[in-house]
Measured scan of single mutants.
Amino acid sequence: LTELETIYVTKEHLQETDVVRAVYRVLKNCPSVALKKKAKCLLSKWKA
């Protein structure tokens, strides 16, 4: 997740890969609050 925060991701990348699905899975299933927060921030950033 940290690496995903530092790289530039285009909408095309998100549509062509399962990155969003994987990050969403972390948000829903990971017991770590810190990782959930990171995943939520990434998804919000990409949605904007």
Score class of each variant (00 low, 15 high):
residue 25 R to G: 09
residue 47 K to E: 00
residue 36 K to E: 00
residue 33 V to F: 15
residue 29 N to P: 00
residue 31 P to K: 15
residue 46 W to K: 00
residue 9 V to C: 08
residue 43 L to Q: 03
residue 2 T to I: 05
residue 32 S to K: 08
residue 5 E to D: 08
residue 43 L to N: 02
residue 26 V to E: 01
residue 20 V to C: 10
residue 33 V to Y: 06
residue 32 S to M: 14
residue 44 S to N: 06
residue 5 E to A: 07
residue 39 A to Q: 00
residue 21 R to Y: 03
residue 17 T to S: 09
residue 17 T to H: 05
residue 39 A to V: 13
residue 25 R to K: 05
residue 28 K to Y: 02
residue 3 E to M: 10
residue 39 A to K: 01
residue 29 N to A: 10
residue 10 T to Y: 01
residue 21 R to L: 01
residue 15 Q to F: 07
residue 30 C to A: 06
residue 26 V to F: 13
residue 22 A to L: 09
residue 27 L to N: 01
residue 36 K to C: 07
residue 33 V to Q: 11
residue 34 A to R: 08
residue 16 E to L: 07
residue 5 E to F: 05
residue 18 D to M: 15
residue 29 N to K: 10
residue 14 L to G: 14
residue 14 L to F: 10
residue 7 I to W: 02
residue 33 V to K: 15
residue 10 T to M: 09
residue 14 L to R: 14
residue 1 L to I: 06
residue 23 V to C: 07
residue 44 S to H: 12
residue 6 T to S: 13
residue 8 Y to G: 13
residue 25 R to I: 01
residue 24 Y to H: 04
residue 28 K to G: 05
residue 44 S to D: 03
residue 43 L to D: 01
residue 42 L to A: 02
residue 11 K to G: 11
residue 45 K to C: 05
residue 24 Y to Q: 07
residue 3 E to Q: 07
residue 34 A to Y: 08
residue 9 V to P: 10
residue 13 H to S: 11
residue 1 L to N: 05
residue 18 D to E: 05
residue 26 V to T: 15
residue 48 A to C: 14
residue 23 V to K: 03
residue 27 L to K: 01
residue 30 C to F: 13
residue 1 L to E: 06
residue 28 K to Q: 02
residue 47 K to H: 06
residue 31 P to H: 06
residue 15 Q to T: 07
residue 32 S to R: 11
residue 28 K to R: 10
residue 4 L to Q: 13
residue 12 E to Y: 00
residue 37 K to T: 03
residue 43 L to A: 01
residue 29 N to W: 15
residue 22 A to C: 07
residue 46 W to S: 00
residue 11 K to D: 11
residue 39 A to I: 14
residue 2 T to H: 10
residue 43 L to G: 00
residue 4 L to E: 14
residue 6 T to P: 05
residue 48 A to W: 04
residue 12 E to C: 01
residue 30 C to N: 06
residue 47 K to Y: 02
residue 37 K to N: 08
residue 31 P to F: 15
residue 26 V to G: 09
residue 9 V to R: 13
residue 44 S to K: 06
residue 16 E to R: 13
residue 39 A to E: 00
residue 8 Y to D: 13
residue 22 A to S: 11
residue 32 S to L: 15
residue 31 P to M: 15
residue 8 Y to N: 10
residue 41 C to N: 15
residue 28 K to M: 01
residue 48 A to P: 03
residue 23 V to P: 01
residue 37 K to R: 12
residue 12 E to T: 10
residue 3 E to R: 07
residue 14 L to N: 14
residue 38 K to Q: 02
residue 18 D to T: 13
residue 33 V to W: 09
residue 45 K to Q: 01
residue 17 T to K: 09
residue 14 L to T: 15
residue 3 E to H: 02
residue 8 Y to Q: 15
residue 26 V to S: 07
residue 31 P to C: 15
residue 16 E to D: 12
residue 5 E to P: 02
residue 7 I to K: 15
residue 13 H to I: 02
residue 44 S to A: 07
residue 10 T to P: 13
residue 44 S to Y: 05
residue 42 L to N: 01
residue 38 K to V: 11
residue 3 E to I: 09
residue 45 K to T: 02
residue 14 L to C: 12
residue 7 I to V: 11
residue 45 K to I: 00
residue 14 L to I: 13
residue 29 N to H: 06
residue 41 C to M: 07
residue 36 K to S: 03
residue 13 H to N: 12
residue 47 K to M: 07
residue 10 T to C: 03
residue 2 T to D: 13
residue 25 R to V: 01
residue 20 V to Y: 06
residue 35 L to G: 00
residue 34 A to F: 06
residue 45 K to L: 04
residue 41 C to A: 14
residue 14 L to M: 13
residue 8 Y to W: 05
residue 39 A to L: 09
residue 46 W to V: 10
residue 22 A to G: 10
residue 33 V to M: 10
residue 3 E to V: 09
residue 10 T to V: 08
residue 9 V to A: 13
residue 39 A to C: 12
residue 47 K to F: 13
residue 38 K to C: 13
residue 27 L to W: 10
residue 46 W to F: 10
residue 30 C to K: 06
residue 42 L to W: 10
residue 9 V to K: 14
residue 24 Y to N: 05
residue 15 Q to P: 13
residue 45 K to V: 00
residue 22 A to W: 14
residue 9 V to H: 13
residue 7 I to Q: 11
residue 13 H to P: 09
residue 17 T to F: 01
residue 11 K to H: 00
residue 37 K to V: 02
residue 25 R to T: 03
residue 39 A to G: 03
residue 15 Q to C: 11
residue 48 A to L: 00
residue 11 K to V: 04
residue 20 V to Q: 02
residue 26 V to R: 14
residue 14 L to W: 12
residue 9 V to W: 06
residue 8 Y to T: 09
residue 43 L to I: 14
residue 44 S to W: 07
residue 11 K to E: 13
residue 6 T to H: 08
residue 9 V to N: 14
residue 26 V to D: 02
residue 38 K to S: 07
residue 10 T to Q: 13
residue 23 V to H: 01
residue 46 W to D: 00
residue 18 D to G: 15
residue 24 Y to C: 11
residue 27 L to T: 01
residue 20 V to T: 05
residue 16 E to Q: 15
residue 31 P to T: 15
residue 32 S to H: 13
residue 27 L to I: 10
residue 9 V to M: 09
residue 19 V to I: 09
residue 18 D to Y: 12
residue 28 K to F: 07
residue 20 V to F: 12
residue 2 T to W: 02
residue 45 K to W: 12
residue 36 K to P: 07
residue 18 D to S: 15
residue 37 K to Q: 03
residue 6 T to F: 07
residue 13 H to G: 07
residue 45 K to D: 04
residue 29 N to T: 12
residue 9 V to Y: 08
residue 3 E to F: 15
residue 6 T to C: 07
residue 47 K to G: 03
residue 31 P to V: 15
residue 42 L to C: 01
residue 32 S to G: 14
residue 4 L to H: 12
residue 5 E to Q: 04
residue 22 A to K: 12
residue 37 K to M: 01
residue 29 N to I: 08
residue 8 Y to R: 09
residue 39 A to W: 10
residue 2 T to Y: 10
residue 20 V to H: 04
residue 45 K to R: 09
residue 14 L to S: 15
residue 17 T to I: 02
residue 30 C to I: 14
residue 47 K to A: 02
residue 14 L to K: 14
residue 38 K to H: 03
residue 13 H to R: 09
residue 12 E to F: 02
residue 22 A to R: 15
residue 13 H to K: 13
residue 25 R to Y: 01
residue 2 T to G: 10
residue 9 V to T: 12
residue 39 A to P: 00
residue 28 K to H: 05
residue 10 T to I: 02
residue 3 E to G: 05
residue 29 N to E: 03
residue 45 K to F: 14
residue 42 L to I: 06
residue 22 A to E: 06
residue 27 L to E: 00
residue 8 Y to H: 09
residue 23 V to E: 03
residue 18 D to I: 07
residue 7 I to Y: 05
residue 25 R to E: 01
residue 26 V to H: 07
residue 12 E to M: 03
residue 7 I to G: 14
residue 11 K to Y: 03
residue 2 T to K: 13
residue 27 L to A: 03
residue 36 K to N: 01
residue 12 E to S: 08
residue 10 T to H: 07
residue 24 Y to I: 13
residue 43 L to V: 06
residue 3 E to N: 11
residue 15 Q to L: 05
residue 36 K to V: 12
residue 25 R to P: 01
residue 20 V to E: 03
residue 38 K to T: 09
residue 6 T to Y: 04
residue 31 P to R: 14
